[in-house]
Design a protein around this nucleic acid. Structure first.
Lengths: 201, 201
DNA sequence: TCATGAATTGACCGGTCGGCCAGTTAATTG
DNA sequence: CAATTAACTGGCCGACCGGTCAATTCATGA
């Protein structure tokens, strides 16, 4: 129902339900969210959600699928726009990835819920991303720009982990003595990570 | 109730309830576990759990508190037994920490649930650990064994993150092309991490 | 030995859960 | 302009939720 024109608009209705479900699932996880909450937040009847999406599980899967495919598309675009692979390119990739997670905390939380779910589906979206990233690293290794004695996939994994976990465990880190802000952590991470990746002399 | 002697044993009963609750909370998280499940698994009545622990929330807090303090004690013991800080000491600390998480996957999951809860209490236990670890790193820096232009707390954070997230996101990594097993990842992580921490020439 | 209090039980409470269904309203289409 | 289909509603279902309570069993110590 379009509240402006008073006319029916099933697409808009679906969108509103998905938005509400997204916000609630991100905040509380699947089990702690009720269909009644989603209904109240999206301004529709509980029955209507079932009409459009079938079940709570189906809604949850759709919310994850949408979020992760948006994430994967954005990241693939980032990866493709870059050109010749060198060390600075990797540095920039880390900076951009870190900034993305910083600007999209709901993606971080959705990843965390999905990990605890042992969700298989969203890992598949990552796979192509990792393949592309690792390919870049491998090219840089062949050109002698990065050390060649490490698995390119592990290089990608390591920086994704380093960025993701920083935001996932934010409530912990904020209580740790001496730990700085986002920028300060990123700077030190890059110092160590990039230096560790230089070719051995 | 002690099933062997048929006699009452409230301490054992509490222990059994805690064990059952631990297993279920680790597997499914707070919201998805019911008191009836805990009761069934521990072989006692739901009322008895309330008698001993008060409420579901209290039981959850106790489960986390026990697990995290056991974790913190074990790690502090590890930290104290080591002597003169050098680069090899840090390498060994990473190896041991990684092995600990590998052997205690329920700790990893409990951490993840706690992060999503925005739980403050367990971060405080970490604080002392991080302080001790960072102190070691700072000593090594002063002796010129590790580069001095990075925040010691960030060094600790980085290796904790690198290890933790590896196990947290295991279901994802296992689908990523080219990613190896635990040992292979740890080896590459150490290569990059330790090399990146050497003093600049 | 017997009284006291803790351990333990099962029945029960009000409330919420996800899902279903019959019915109504509004677009679409032939 | 009917007829058909999809969008949408409110009420209801059985199951389950966390929690309470009175009653019972048992260990213990005076």
């Amino acid at each position: 129902m379009n509240t402006v024109t008073g006319t029916r608009d099933p697409d808009l209705t679906r969108e509103r339900i998905l938005e509400a479900a997204h916000a609630l699932f991100v905040a509380k996880g699947f089990a702690a969210v009720s269909m009644r909450e989603v209904a109240a937040r999206s301004g529709v009847t509980k029955s209507l959600i079932h009409h459009h999406f079938g079940s709570k599980e189906a809604l949850w899967e759709l919310v994850k699928e949408r979020a992760f495919s948006a994430y994967a598309e954005g990241q693939q675009a980032e990866l493709r726009q870059a050109d010749a692979p060198d060390a600075a390119l990797l540095t920039n990739a880390v900076i951009r990835y870190f900034a993305f997670l910083q600007a999209n905390p709901e993606v971080v939380r959705l990843f965390a819920w999905s990990h605890l779910d042992a969700d298989q589906s969203c890992g598949r979206l990552d796979a192509e991303l990792v393949r592309l990233g690792a390919e870049r690293v491998r090219q840089a290794q062949q050109r002698g720009l990065l050390r060649a004695d490490v698995n390119p996939a592990h290089v990608v994994t390591m920086f994704v982990n380093g960025c993701t976990q920083w935001f996932t465990a934010r409530t912990h880190h904020s209580q740790w003595p001496g730990v700085g802000n986002d920028q300060e952590y990123l700077d030190d991470f890059l110092k160590i990570f990039m230096e560790g990746l230089l070719p051995r002399t």
